[in-house]
Design a protein around this nucleic acid. Sequence first.
RNA 1: GCGCCCAUAGCUCAGCCGGAUAGAGCAACGGAUUUCUAAUCCGUCGGUCGGAGGUUCGAGUCCUCCUGGGCGCGCCA
Length: 568
Amino acid sequence: METFQALLAQKLSAALTAADLPDAGEITQARDPRFGDYQTSAALVLAKQRGEKPRTVAQRIIEKLEVVDVCEPPQIAGAGFINFTLRRAALEQKTTELLRDERLGVATTDAPKRIVIDFGSPNVAKPMHVGHIRSTVLGDSLARIAEFMGHNVVRDNHIGDWGTQFGMVIYGWKNLLDRAALEQDPIAELVRIYKGANEAATADPAVRDACREELVKLQAGEAENFAIWQQCTALSMGEFERAYQLLDIHYDIQRGESFYNDRLPAVVERLCTSGLAEKSEGAVCVFFRDIPDLADRPCIIRKRDGGYNYATTDVATVDYRIGDLQRDTIWIVTGAPQQLHFRQIFEIARREGRNADFRHITHGSILGEDRKLMKTRSGDNVALKDVLAEAIVRARSLIDEKNADMPEAEKAEIARIIGIGAVKYADLSQYRMTDYVFSWDRMLSLQGNTAPYLQNAYVRVQSIFRKAGEQITVPNELVLADPGESVLAKCLCQFAEVVPTVLNGFRPNVLAAYLFELANGFHAFYEACPVLKSDEPARSSRLALCNLTARVLQRGLELLGIGVPEKM
RNA sequence: GCGCCCAUAGCUCAGCCGGAUAGAGCAACGGAUUUCUAAUCCGUCGGUCGGAGGUUCGAGUCCUCCUGGGCGCGCCA
């Protein structure tokens, strides 16, 4: 099935050829109803290229446009725009097709990629905090969308399970550990001993040396320290898993940093042999002297003390993803501060002749009401599990307020769907680079661009179907007589145009904005067009529109990783 | 010092390749409801798009400079 946009683009292209003009311009959705449904500025572009008058060029194009089966005669407007207004019959037909299409009109890509998406990446022995929401939720959504588009996707959790912090953790484990506390809340106890060791090391050089010694032993594979490390990792993974379950996040593989340990020496050796890396001040570095703004920013791949760092690991990770996983596309979803690092890593890969498509997908931060990085009053990171728990509690109290007689188990499940959905949507509905202010009241509001608002639109549809009973038949053809119907139908047809564009700039917020608009359109339709009380053929058509609306909302929210309740 | 990101309505934010008179939501104000769940809808008010130049038919969008914020820059990740 083709979208109107694609259809008109083909027809425009054909018209340009027929008019002996080069292919130019695109079809876009009209941004204002006065300009019809679709528009193109092709004539403006061509007029500029050829030094002709835009409206004259537009006239030449229009004469060759064969769109009578899709839209009303195209209009020239403004400086030389060509506007298209869909014919009702075409809209009715397309909407009917949509009704029978599992994919709601969304085409699969004709250039499937083998993608690995690296997102989330929590650290062992540290609690997950609000800061992990962005990468986790964004990466998950991009994975869902890429998969839906027909790409082959591997979701990889690049866990921070190796590094210098383990010197302190192990020192703390041996000297400060409270077993009872560890049983009670493992991560809290790990954090406590880490902090304790850190403070001690800062105050006492002997402790600092001891921590370093523990690290060296761990890295050398010494049995006791290795066992401690394994326990820490296992405890942390348990905690991560609980969060992922709540969030409905799934990984295909979880290759932590430690996975790459035994590959690191070979990486350095290879880079030295090929001449890409060289010794400098005792360390082994890769220089980028031919790139002006990287000229004085070498990438260290082996420290002076012979140890490896995260740059080494990341080079090995690229090797693994391209070599072992056979990926041609690598998406890394992390915060913006790591841009320089990944630029260097990708540049090294290019210099080694790797021709995968590397993307560092960055994002901004979550801020508190004070517009600074979100922290607790004591200045600590806000624990993710606390945020999720509070989201559910707050959603629950809304349900209690609005729907008190609902059974207990149902309330609990709906509270989870709404609470978690609200947190995710607050994140995804914003452009990923924007730092946004975390606000419970705003994200759980039933008004405005929020998950509950969208979920509520879905619930209203379901309510109609429950009331209607089971005698619902899918009509063979729709009748869209009321403006409320056609506006909604047009919006439904645009789902297939919007979804593919999300991956352009990795912007789930574009999908969120679309779903909001759809919910708006539905609510307007709902007000203006009675469904069950209307006569045929309107009744069937309206039921069909309701069905499509629910399916698009459900699918769209699912692509954002958000669920829908049947009641709320 | 160098580099990256950000600055749009009172508040929170959209605005992908430059396209028509810059859009939402919240807040404020005014309407609609004995409902297919008003957890909603309709309307009004509100902007020198941080500043100054430039590129062109056209700039919130691209270029240069400036201001103000965030972040990063050799042995943490």
